[in-house]
Each structure stands twice: as structure tokens, then as C-alpha cells.
């Protein structure tokens, strides 16, 4: 299981790095919102993998919160961007 955990960690870390580059490069705020959503999904995957690796369910409630929070975040950014665009 350790080899699996290392593999998954490396894959997720690279994915997170690429996503961070998109967040930095933009160009628009919506690009960043989408990339942040992906980063959040990667973080959820990382926490779930950790829970699976150590057989420890302490972090699982965090996942529930994250699954809802990401939605609120990108919806509010989208509303903000839409209002600015239509002015």
C-alpha cells in the first residue's frame, strides 16, 4: 500500500502544480475560478487517499464541507464576473 500511496501522491502533486500554474497565468478571473475548483478536487482526492492509506476516518467530515464549499466559491465568482461583464 505504501507504493500506491507514493504513486498517488506524486501524481496528485504534479497535477496540483500544473493547476497552480493555470491559476497564476489566468488570464481571466473565470479561468482562475475553474482552476481553483480543480485544485479543490485534487485536495479532496489527496485527503481521501490519506484516509485510505492510514485507515483513519478523522478527515472525512472535512471532505463533506469541501464538496459544498467549492460550489459556493465558484458560483459567487461567476456572479461577480457576470455583473462586471454586463456593465
Amino acid at each position: 500500500m505504501t507504493a500506491v500511496a507514493v504513486t498517488v501522491t506524486v501524481l496528485l502533486a504534479v497535477a496540483g502544480g500544473l493547476t497552480l500554474m493555470r491559476i497564476i497565468r489566468g488570464p481571466s478571473i473565470l479561468d482562475r475560478a475553474v482552476a481553483t475548483d480543480v485544485l479543490l478536487a485534487i485536495i479532496v482526492a489527496a485527503i481521501a487517499t490519506e484516509a485510505a492509506y492510514s485507515r483513519d476516518a478523522t478527515a472525512l467530515p472535512v471532505l463533506v464541507v469541501l464538496a459544498v464549499l467549492g460550489f459556493v466559491g465558484s458560483v459567487s465568482v461567476a456572479r461577480f464576473a457576470a455583473r462586471r461583464n454586463t456593465k
Binding site: V8, L11, L12, A15, L18, T19, A35, V38, A45, A52
Partner: peptide, 16 residues
């Protein structure tokens, strides 16, 4: 788990 991580990686590449 590995399949899920691979999909995340592909998404990272695609985002760029």
C-alpha cells in the same frame, strides 16, 4: 485510487 489520481493529472495537463 491510482486511476483517480491519473485523471487528476490529465486534468492538470489539459488545464494548461
Amino acid at each position: 485510487l491510482v486511476a483517480g489520481a491519473l485523471l487528476s493529472l490529465a486534468a492538470g495537463v489539459a488545464l494548461l
